[in-house]
Structure formats: structure tokens, C-alpha cells
Write a protein that binds this DNA or RNA. Structure first.
Length: 242
DNA sequence: ATGGTCAACTTGATAT
DNA sequence: ATATCAAGTTGACCAT
């Protein structure tokens, strides 16, 4: 459950403290971004960083550090407001609407996530928990990473398929053009004698049968004289969805 | 400035 | 009811 996921934040990274003081002109915040002026005066507050409790906090001690590992292990990127969605999920945005620094995973974190993704593109809750612990991330962050990773994989696959179809289309267009030209040639030949004709029944007639140039070409080229069953082959033979 | 990348988010569907 | 997913979106950050 995602509420619990966010609670992991506390468990994994220790207490999240943020001193908020915004009384008139003076401001005091540990956040690394200047906070926009609140619409209504904010009471000075010192609260524990328990996002799941929807308190007025979300920032973290230690965020001053520019280290990725520090940032990524603390609070996820722009998840800065703390609010409860109608489905009960936690979406932490800061109440004053301030944006946070974007999380960047470290190379080590990304590498491990990639490794796990190669093993399986989805995680069961246990795997998620374990991986989150290993990476010093919240399970929710791991979950989101896998969701985004799957989306990227699918997008890439779609792009590749799209390019393949584009080439197929080009090939078919070219063949169509060639066949039309051939048809024109055959039509013009139609006015000349002797006419090409299908072999009538009877052995004597077969002796005089001539193959038209088009069929001849195909025969010599190793292709069957009869038209292939279909030119519209399935470009994705291994994909059941297509 | 602008476009690309990506973590995080929202929403709706589905499974349990 | 809850968890999880795909699809689409947002916004910070970075390279150009």
C-alpha cells in the first residue's frame, strides 16, 4: 500500500525534520529552493516529517547536500506537497505549492534497477521491499521506476515496429509501382501477335504455348510463376497482439 | 530559449 | 476495499 510506502521514508532515512517559519518578511526553511510566498501567513512550525500524516512537512534535513545519494534516499524529487488523494494515496506536495529539486538516481541505483528489470519487468511486493532497502529508496520510488521503465520499453518497441512498418510500406509501394508498370507493358503487348495465352487443353497446343516475359522472369529468378500466396506478410510473427 | 529526459503524479481499468 | 498496472501528464533539470 502506498501509504505504507511513504512511511518507509521515515524508517529508512530517519526523521524528516523541517523548520518552517514564515512570519511576514522573515523566512526560515531548510529547503534548498526559495519558497514562494504563501498565500496566507504560515504559522511557525517545527514538525516531524511523516508524509503519510499529511503534516505541514516534507522537506528533509540533509537536503542541503547536492549528493545524489542523499537526495534520492530522502525525498523523491518533486514530491513535495503532502496531500491525500481521494483514493487514499499520498501525494506529497508542499502545502505552499513549492517545487522541489528533481531526484536523480545514482549510477549505482540505476544499474541495479536495470539489472533487476532484466530479470523481471515486474516486481512482487517482497521484491520491491527488498530492492528498496538495498537501494535506500522508498518502495514507491522503486515501483514508479519500474512503471516508467516498462513504459520506456514499450515506447521503444513501438518505435522500432513503426520504423519496420514504414519500410514495409515503402517496399510494397515500390512493388506496386513496378507491377503497375508491368501491367502497362502487358496491355501494350496485348495488341501484338502472337498473343500470349494460357495453354489450351491438349498436348499439341502445349507445344506452342509461350510464357509471357513477366512469368519468365519469375521462373528464372527462382520465384514461383504463380503469384505468392500473399505479399502482406505479418511483420510481427512473434507478437500475438498484432 | 528550447527540446529531451525522467521521476513523480493522476486517472481509469482490472484483479484479488 | 485495496493493490497494481498502463497511459498520459507535469515539472525539474540538463545539454544545446
Amino acid at each position: 500500500m502506498e501509504v505504507n510506502d511513504d512511511r518507509d521514508d521515515v524508517q529508512e532515512t530517519g526523521l524528516s525534520l523541517r523548520l518552517n517559519y514564515d512570519g511576514g518578511s522573515s523566512r526560515l526553511s531548510t529547503g534548498d529552493h526559495p519558497r514562494p510566498q504563501a498565500a496566507t501567513p504560515v504559522e511557525p512550525s517545527l514538525t516531524l516529517g511523516l508524509p503519510s500524516m499529511a503534516c505541514s512537512v516534507s522537506g528533509v534535513v540533509g537536503r542541503m547536500s547536492s549528493s545524489h545519494s542523499v537526495i534520492s534516499s530522502i525525498s523523491g524529487g518533486r514530491r513535495s506537497k503532502v496531500k491525500r488523494e481521494n483514493d487514499g494515496r499520498i501525494s506529497d506536495e508542499e502545502e505552499d505549492g513549492a517545487a522541489r529539486k528533481k531526484l536523480r538516481l545514482t549510477k549505482e541505483q540505476s544499474a541495479l534497477l536495470e539489472d533487476k528489470f532484466k530479470e523481471h519487468a515486474t516486481l512482487n511486493p517482497k521484491q520491491k521491499q527488498a530492492l528498496a532497502r538495498q537501494l535506500n529508496l522508498r518502495p514507491r520510488q522503486v515501483e514508479v521506476w519500474f512503471q516508467n521503465r516498462r513504459a520506456r520499453t514499450k515506447l521503444k518497441k513501438t518505435e522500432i515496429e513503426c520504423e519496420f512498418l514504414r519500410k514495409c510500406c515503402e517496399t510494397l509501394r515500390e512493388e506496386n509501382r513496378r507491377l503497375l508498370q508491368e501491367l502497362q507493358e502487358l496491355k501494350s503487348l496485348d495488341f501484338q501477335a502472337p498473343r500470349y495465352m494460357h495453354p489450351p487443353p491438349g498436348a499439341a497446343a502445349a507445344a506452342t504455348f509461350q510464357t509471357c516475359p513477366s512469368c519468365k522472369n519469375r521462373d528464372e529468378g527462382g520465384s514461383p510463376a504463380v503469384a505468392p500466396k500473399t505479399r502482406f506478410f505479418n511483420p510481427f510473427p512473434h507478437s500475438a497482439a498484432y
